[in-house]
Amino acid sequence: MTDVLVCVKRVPDNSGEILLTDDAQSVDARHVGFTVSAHEVCAVALAVEVAAATDGEATVLTLGPGDAVEQARDAVAVGCASAVLIEADSGAYGPADVSRAIAEVVLAHAERGRTYDLVLLGNDAADTGDFQVGARLGYELDRPVLTGISTLDVTGRTVTARGDGPGGAEVFEVPLPAVVTVMEGGVTPRYPSVPGRMKAKRATVETVIPRTAPTGGGRVRLKLPPAQPSSVQILGEGPDAAPAVVDLLERLGVLPT
């Protein structure tokens, strides 16, 4: 039986135009929706799979404002059995603060008799992109950490994980308990069923207040790249444009000689 903890972060959906707050400290999210990173969606799918295959349970955890329960519930809707909200201003939390707060919950739950042999995270958060909470959590919990994993399964006390490496698909075999960060690409995201949504609505979310004050992530300010007006030159329509295209390729000097 492997109980799995999976960590997701509520972030503004940046598929539209991005605006900043006046103090340039954060994204102006008044007019956008919220989501989690694609890596975390895959981590949730893996957490639910491993739990189901080993008769364990998957728990979702998020550190953020009260509204972040929305993202926790989304994970319950696709198969997580329970949810934890570490209620805090995630903007004030740097990666070291986040990993410490997650570790506090893992240890507190262990004291209550629930051990998460596997903790899954995304490879990097969609907003701050710090690429390190997973590694830091490994040290907080004194567990081995694998990074950038696309698929995994648990047999007995070993997790076998695969990820893309420079020379091909790399395979790891690590004893539990372990921390693994997930990169999208290996699993299909799960979509909620109607009963799943109902269950998510009713689920109780354990709310935790972090014990340690955050030190922050060193942000001075955010800035946006300048918007550029379109200056596209249409070379033509349909196959008739081919000569104009090849003229361009010749001008750019990209045709191998």
Partner: peptide, 14 residues
């Protein structure tokens, strides 16, 4: 680069 490259963050390393 933050927000998947759509914005930049100035960050202080002390």
């Amino acid at each position: 680069q933050v927000l998947g490259g759509s914005a930049l963050e100035e960050m202080r390393l002390d």
